[in-house]
Design a protein around this nucleic acid. Sequence first.
DNA 1: TTGATTGCAAACCATTTGCAGAAGC
DNA 2: GCTTCTGCAAATGGTTTGCAATCAA
Lengths: 141, 141
Amino acid sequence: MYHDHVPFKAKGLKATKQRHEIVEIIAHADYPLSAEEIYLELVKRGISLNLSTVYRTIETLVAKQVLGKVNLDNELKNRFELINQEQHHHHLICLSCNQIIAIEHCPLKSYENQIANKHHFTITNHKLDLYGYCEKCEAKV
Amino acid sequence: MYHDHVPFKAKGLKATKQRHEIVEIIAHADYPLSAEEIYLELVKRGISLNLSTVYRTIETLVAKQVLGKVNLDNELKNRFELINQEQHHHHLICLSCNQIIAIEHCPLKSYENQIANKHHFTITNHKLDLYGYCEKCEAKV
DNA sequence: TTGATTGCAAACCATTTGCAGAAGC
DNA sequence: GCTTCTGCAAATGGTTTGCAATCAA
């Protein structure tokens, strides 16, 4: 019935209609979404569910490492994207049109180790976001 | 009377007592502060001013590039730090005790160029935050 | 059947705003 | 004196929570 983006049961979660729908939306977006955006998209599709369910689902799925939080500047705060099989990546953000592009290659492995040693930290993850202007917006200025 | 952290007049701003005090607090903190923390520190020092003044001052100073906004993943509120003469840096955050350490060295110059070329972007800045556990917190687990 | 999940409404918290008075230049 | 800035109190917007009903297993 639903494309199986997330093995809910294997994660100890009940497979509810709401969870499937929410994951469905996030899985098909080509950039990270906010709770509000997810909710509005659900409404647009005629699916009735509560905003707090969206928040609770997001929270649960972040805890289960199904979703990752993306916290950008501008109005682009608190957005979420599927982690699933895709690898770790970074974001390139246009400060004019706010488009968000995922960048696959990460150059920070050895830097992480270096910092970990120097500061006696166990580093579990990092966030790198690059800000600037895309070709189109740059041309407009 | 006040150590001159910021040339208010040169920025087209009135040099008020409140602004001096707020900048004073931020300048002497060794990690980025939230509006609430700035306010509480002012109260502790016996300086009376309003929370909304803190917010308005921060907003003004961010617009004037005097302060930089730091938006971390593990909390909802915003934090701020002086930009002035210090160089670009990154943050190392302990997810257990929430301490924030500034890291001076930035390894991303050539990576930035590489991404700029590949995606036809003009990159103006970037944010890198490393998350993990400090020695003490790691030991507790 | 039973515990997890949801809907709803109310609560919460960080931040913003309107307005009148105070202060800088 | 004129304009900016501040204090106060109220409003806002995003997110969280308590509780009773509903649903998946």
